[in-house]
Lab assay of single mutants.
Amino acid sequence: EADPRLIESLSQMLSMGFSDEGGWLTRLLQTKNYDIGAALDTIQY
Rank of each mutant, 00 (worst) to 15 (best):
E1L: 12
A2P: 13
A2H: 12
A2V: 14
D3L: 07
D3V: 03
P4I: 11
P4C: 05
P4S: 12
R5H: 03
R5Q: 10
R5T: 06
L6R: 04
L6D: 01
L6P: 04
L6W: 06
I7H: 09
I7D: 08
I7K: 12
I7T: 12
I7Y: 13
E8L: 10
E8P: 05
E8G: 05
S9L: 06
L10N: 00
L10S: 01
L10W: 03
S11K: 14
S11G: 13
S11R: 15
S11T: 08
Q12H: 11
Q12A: 14
Q12S: 11
M13G: 01
M13K: 01
M13A: 04
M13H: 01
L14C: 07
L14T: 09
L14K: 11
S15V: 11
S15F: 09
S15D: 07
S15K: 14
S15G: 15
M16E: 04
M16R: 06
M16Y: 09
M16V: 04
M16I: 07
G17I: 02
G17Y: 01
G17T: 00
F18Q: 01
F18V: 03
F18C: 06
F18W: 09
S19E: 11
S19K: 12
S19M: 08
D20I: 03
D20P: 02
D20W: 03
E21K: 09
E21H: 08
E21D: 13
G22F: 09
G22L: 07
G23V: 01
W24D: 04
W24P: 00
W24A: 04
W24G: 03
L25F: 01
T26I: 06
T26N: 03
T26A: 07
R27T: 14
R27P: 03
L28S: 00
L28Q: 00
L29I: 05
L29T: 02
L29Q: 01
L29Y: 01
Q30R: 10
Q30A: 08
Q30G: 09
T31S: 15
T31I: 13
T31N: 15
T31R: 14
T31L: 15
K32P: 01
K32R: 09
N33L: 11
Y34W: 02
Y34R: 00
Y34S: 04
I36L: 07
I36P: 03
I36T: 07
I36H: 03
I36Y: 04
G37M: 15
G37I: 14
G37Y: 14
A38Y: 07
A38H: 08
L40C: 07
L40F: 07
L40S: 03
L40E: 01
D41Q: 15
D41M: 15
D41S: 11
D41I: 15
D41V: 13
T42R: 08
T42G: 09
T42S: 11
I43D: 02
I43L: 13
I43W: 05
I43G: 01
I43M: 08
I43A: 04
I43C: 10
Q44S: 13
Q44L: 14
Q44T: 10
Q44F: 15
Q44M: 14
Y45K: 10
Y45G: 12
Y45S: 15
Y45V: 10
Y45T: 11
Y45L: 15
